[in-house]
Design a protein around this nucleic acid. Structure first.
Lengths: 356, 356
DNA sequence: CTGAAAGCGCTTACAG
DNA sequence: CTGAAAGCGCTTACAG
């Protein structure tokens, strides 16, 4: 990625765009100073909107800035000790996940309002579908090299312990949706347990006692908390869990669909289904609709048109952008000097009922 | 956003995270050089993996790098003329739009593979729902100040002429989904006209002659091309357009739903509907489903579960991530020295049929 | 209110 | 193969 050596001050040129030439060396403060007939210090003061500049001088300099199209080189500014890069980073696993995308939107809003720009990096998964450790280490190194002011991370279920410790040792880090083990830090969580409880109570109130469960990874993070909410509600109501009605580890709506088909084919099928995320809810909706089964659905995440497919459904919904705004708010507060103990923010969820 | 003056070399400290202190001044090449007993030049050579370094020296330096946890300061490196920031920027209007999110994903994949990091900025809309000009100018200034190596832009329908000209004059810019008037540059477009034509042909082949049209902004960009494809197909088939069946300027699925309700209530309703984007398709699906109308749908964009709602539907689908990959590919090619005339890439679309 | 000078952390000819 | 020195474009005490 390094450009071949160039003889200074050869401009970097770009002749694409049909002969358009971009990249004549951009004007520097020195150029502005010469143009305005003042010193570089004075240009710096004007550009930084400092006080103690004679109005006439300021005007002169501003005219030169405009005439030359001067834009301060941020890399140079950043180099001074104590100066910020005015850059935040958001690290997600997969941006195509709607949660990540809306989260990023919320983060960007707050970042922009606070004068920061957002780097977006995704860790992805390796060929085996596992978290890509190499890429994760690269990302941490990249962020440290770039001296980002702060980082927001949606950690993976299987994040190596302390992966982000090196990062957290050098810049404030806010974790989103789950807190990796062994790391202290600010974290913004959804009320997953509360949502699981409310969905389950909603089913119990409607008389359901045989409730099926279709879920993804239930060993840690959001999935674990949703399951614990489910179980807590059953326990509180004195209703028994039916192990044969629980299906975990489903990774797609297709896998969820098969799971629900299995459940519906049981001699004693469930009368209701708890779906622990968007993929599960979509799969279950399809299976129930196809089977024209008399099964009530309760699931996590908004699914467009869900209410049209089944007679009765309750969905836990939330605003990922709000999660992003809050997480970015915590981070910018740290950057503004906040030194309180690690904070844990829980974002409430909503229950939306549909159907007859 | 500027930190208060600090007395050098006071470290920036962060006492959040429960007393955890981050930000002791990171080690520099000077520190590594002292630790390894070599000159700074030599450290630079090792860090940059240059040839002509004695293996023993290299090993010594690498040990010091590891011991001190040295990570080259990218701002400092960038300062030298001819050096890149290794940063691309993607500018979209709204990241919550699934197209933007998947696009960003594709861009990030290619950027990461080529050694670039992606800045993500959204222009948003102002209070009046119009493109926010002030924010757009800020973004252009920000990107120029940061000396990003290249930019990908999804321009708005109502972009001011030449808004991105200042940018394009200094760095390669690739436009996505539409090309602003008055700007030359690489552009990646979807085959919107082709998609519109195919959807319309699909309807015509099934005998439809009264085809309704539900669309958003049809004055420019993708909307205009989809409409032109619709009209071209009608013309080619010698089928008349029915002006009373055309509804434009709908901005949400709710507005599309109302439009379709109007159409279905006509004395002579359409027998088929053409929907020019995802929102329109969702609204039309709902309206047709609710009215249990015998209307065939043909629409743009994948809609989850669409086929379950209506008897027969055809959807034009495409992979926004692929658009992102291609756009980023054009950009990285420019950055690698490609100097051909502006390129226009058209990404093909698919037609998916559902229903009995 | 203004300017000369030092220095941020690197890279790069230039010597050796 | 290695080092001393200049310089990238800024900011910041320090003098005046």
């Amino acid at each position: 990625m390094t450009a071949p050596p160039v003889v200074y001050p050869a401009p970097r040129t770009f002749a694409g765009g049909g002969g358009r030439v971009a990249g004549a060396r951009p004007p520097t403060m020195r150029d502005v100073a010469a143009h305005a007939g003042v010193s570089i210090s004075t240009v710096s003061r004007v550009v930084n909107a400092e006080r103690y500049v004679d109005p006439a001088t300021r005007e002169k300099v501003e005219a030169s800035v405009a005439a030359l199209g001067f834009l301060r080189n941020e890399s140079a500014r950043t180099l001074r000790p104590g100066q910020r890069t005015a850059t935040l980073a958001l690290v997600v696993e997969d941006l195509t996940n709607p949660f990540s995308a809306e989260l990023a939107h919320g983060v960007e809003l707050v970042a922009a309002a606070a004068g920061y720009v957002m780097l977006l990096l995704s860790t992805g998964r390796d060929a085996g579908g596992e978290r890509d450790r190499v890429r994760e280490r690269e990302i941490v190194a990249e962020l440290l090299s770039r001296r980002v002011d702060g980082v927001l991370v949606v950690p993976g279920a299987d994040d190596a312990e302390g992966l982000y410790a090196a990062l957290a040792a050098r810049a404030p880090v806010v974790f989103v949706d789950r807190l990796p083990r062994g790391v202290r830090g600010d974290v913004v969580l959804l009320d997953n347990a509360g949502g699981g409880r409310r969905l389950t109570q909603w089913l119990l109130e409607r008389g359901h006692r045989r409730i099926g469960y279709v879920g993804g990874d239930q060993r840690s993070g959001p999935g674990a908390r949703r399951l614990s909410g489910f179980r807590a509600a059953l326990r509180a109501a004195g209703v028994a869990e039916h192990p044969e009605l629980l299906r975990f580890g489903r990774r797609s709506s297709d896998e969820a669909l098969s799971a629900v088909e299995e459940l519906l084919a049981l001699a004693e099928p469930p009368t209701a289904l708890f779906c622990d995320n968007n993929r599960m809810t979509v799969g279950a909706l399809l299976a129930v609709h196809r089977a024209r089964a008399d099964v009530v659905l309760a699931g996590f995440d908004a699914v467009e048109l869900a209410e049209v497919l089944v007679d009765r459904v309750a969905l836990v919904t939330y605003d990922p952008a709000d999660v992003g705004r809050r997480a970015a708010g915590l981070l910018t507060a740290r950057l503004a000097g906040e030194t309180s103990a690690p904070r844990r923010v829980t974002v409430p969820v909503d229950l939306a009922e549909f159907g007859t």
